[in-house]
């Protein structure tokens, strides 16, 4: 019953990569629930399975076993086309290396998810302007990514991730390529969007500045959930992540 009420429900998920005869187990019996409006960090050392878990939640990879539900939909039952539609409509992505389309301007990059959803040109213009305004880049709308700073590019990426009003935004190490000032701005931005729009954020990070702003931290170790501070003290989990 709980799984149907959660925005994201990960149940006993395993992910094994066939890299040698035995395979490499990236995730080992992971279960997790994320409610709408959560601001959740997945932390852990390199190779602990953070990106794999995000990929599975983002439906860009499939678990070896177990079940993932997004907004009540069991993703294992979806065809490739249905999965693509689910990502298009319900999920926004922010990548560590920004992954903007270099030949598009900032506005065109933000517009892209709306193009894919075949939303009318007028509606696209309105939403793109609002999204860029919300990340403070309205005046940089017509600049191409190579003319933007790293922080600006990541804010464009955030605008692109939220422009189609997804239920869930996934961010893989969003501050990893940013300096302190830009990282802080991005963290503040994500936090503001979470609070003001009620957007659900799940992100992987090592960044202590980001972790300090995060109410809920899931710590992965060797593909297993070592801790989830749901109901625990934030300080204890934060201390464990830092150590």
């Amino acid at each position: 019953m709980q799984s149907t009420s959660s925005l994201v429900s990960v149940e006993n998920v395993n992910r094994v990569f066939a890299m040698d005869h035995n395979g490499v187990k990236a995730l080992d019996d992971v279960s997790l629930r994320v409610d709408s409006g959560d601001f959740l960090a997945i932390s852990g050392p390199s190779g602990s399975g953070k990106s794999t878990l995000l990929n599975l939640i983002g439906c860009i990879d499939r678990p070896t076993s177990g079940c993932i539900r997004i907004d009540g939909t069991d993703t294992s039952t979806l065809s490739a086309v249905q999965t693509s539609r689910l990502r298009r409509e319900k999920i926004g992505f922010v990548f560590q290396t920004f992954n903007l389309i270099p030949v598009f301007t900032a506005a065109e990059n933000v517009e892209y998810p709306l193009l894919v959803q075949q939303i009318s040109a007028r509606e696209r213009r309105t939403r793109v302007a609002a999204a860029l305004e919300s990340v403070g880049l309205a005046e940089r709308a017509n600049h191409r990514p190579d003319l933007l700073s790293g922080g600006e590019r990541q804010r464009v990426a955030v605008a692109r991730a939220i422009v189609h009003r997804p239920a869930l935004v996934l961010a893989d190490e969003p501050t990893a390529n940013l300096d302190t000032r830009n990282a802080t701005q991005l963290i503040d931005l994500m936090r503001d969007l979470n609070r003001s729009l009620g957007l659900t954020f799940i992100f992987s990070t090592h960044d202590q500045r980001l972790l300090e702003q995060t109410a809920r931290i899931v710590r992965l170790t060797d593909g297993r959930i070592a801790s989830d501070n749901q109901g625990e003290s934030h300080g204890q989990v934060l201390a464990a992540c830092v150590s």
Partner: peptide, 16 residues
């Protein structure tokens, strides 16, 4: 490759 992966992640139909 990575750009195509990004476009696909954002739900771009493969036929596009």
């Amino acid at each position: 490759t990575r750009e195509i992966g990004t476009m696909l992640a954002m739900g771009t139909p493969r036929r596009w």
